[in-house]
């Protein structure tokens, strides 16, 4: 660590003083960051969102000036509400950022009627890559061999689909997806977590399951699961019909987005600094290798693209909102 000379201290004081008198006037990208940055994860350690932050966080440190650390802070209460509310209320100085689950938070807000934060007002920094798209699949031992088989079953009786509780993003995806595809359903709901309900389909609890691609691919590689159709506009899985082929392009809008945001009113220089550090870390070999191994696409989003993304998602889920809050 370099030692500060008296002159440097004076300069630093000179920069700092006006910022005390005139709020925000002294903000310069050069001074930021001067202390560790808290990265709020509104879920318990060990989940998908937590892993992203703990993986990308240390890489992001490399691309920030002044060698500060990024500290993951798990605030798991209230299904994620408390963490996001705390982020929203924090001082917009760049020292508190957080990861936000879309549409998870839309669903939660709708169910809890929470007015503690406005999701469209956050200062966006970017995303953890591209949102995860969904596929519909069956256990390897299932008699259903194609999407046509599934449709035929639906004509005979409601198709049993395993899914998380109504608070989960998977629940919304399953409700909207089956609605769009015109499949009659009988949901077996309440499975905990995004892996459990796929295993339920493998075990034969249900006929089929609608799950995010990275989760599903893990089981496809092990030969446990067979994909019948993809909700992507252009299927990344060979030999499987996609949203275009099924004639339902809207399916591509069903996704899980991991947005990175800061409290409203973040000064633009700080926002840009954080955004470029995030974008660079998504392109870092340490992250890209992990992403490739896990079927995740780490395409970065600029703050403007992120704001646009959440507006799009808002519009899409508003259209389907009656399926987000059953029970």
């Amino acid at each position: 660590m370099a030692r500060l000379t008296r002159r440097e201290l004076l300069v630093a004081a000179g920069i700092a003083t006006p910022s005390l008198i005139v709020p925000r006037a002294g903000y310069g990208a050069a001074a930021f960051p001067a202390k560790p940055i808290n990265f709020i994860i509104p879920y318990a350690p060990g989940g998908g969102f937590d892993v992203y932050v703990r993986l990308v966080g240390p890489v992001m440190e490399k691309y920030l000036p002044n060698k500060v650390s990024i500290v993951p802070v798990n605030i798991a209460a209230g299904g994620g509400n408390r963490g996001v509310a705390q982020l929203y209320r924090s001082r917009p100085d760049g020292y508190t950022i957080g990861i936000i689950n879309i549409p998870g938070m839309f669903i939660l807000q709708q169910q809890q009627g929470s007015g503690a934060y406005d999701l469209t007002k956050f200062s966006w920094i970017g995303t953890m890559g591209e949102g995860e798209r969904y596929v519909i699949s069956v256990g390897a031992k299932s008699p259903l061999k194609s999407f046509a088989d599934l449709k035929a079953l639906s004509a005979k009786r409601p198709v049993k689909l395993s899914v998380t509780g109504p608070e989960g993003t998977a629940y919304a995806a399953t409700m909207i997806g089956t609605q769009l595809l015109g499949i009659r359903t009988q949901l077996i709901s309440g499975y905990k977590g995004s892996v459990d309900y796929v295993v339920a389909a493998i075990r034969g609890d249900s006929d089929a399951v609608i799950a995010a691609i990275p989760t599903t691919m893990r089981f496809v590689r092990g030969g446990e699961v067979r994909i019948l159709a993809s909700f992507e506009a252009h299927s990344s899985i060979p030999g499987v019909p996609d949203a275009t082929a099924l004639g339902k392009p809207e399916l591509d809008q069903i996704s899980v987005e991991r947005l990175i945001g800061a409290p409203p009113g973040l000064p633009a220089p700080v926002q840009n600094l954080l955004a470029s550090a995030l974008a660079k870390s998504l392109a870092d070999p340490a992250v890209t290798k992990w992403a490739k191994d896990n079927d995740i696409r780490m395409t970065p989003h600029t703050p403007a693209q992120t704001a646009q993304l959440i507006a799009q998602q808002r519009a899409f889920f508003d259209k389907w909102r009656k399926y987000l809050a059953t029970g």
Partner: peptide
Amino acid sequence: LIVHGMQPGPL
């Protein structure tokens, strides 16, 4: 495990 590139699962 995941951070170290070992994705839990059948494989």
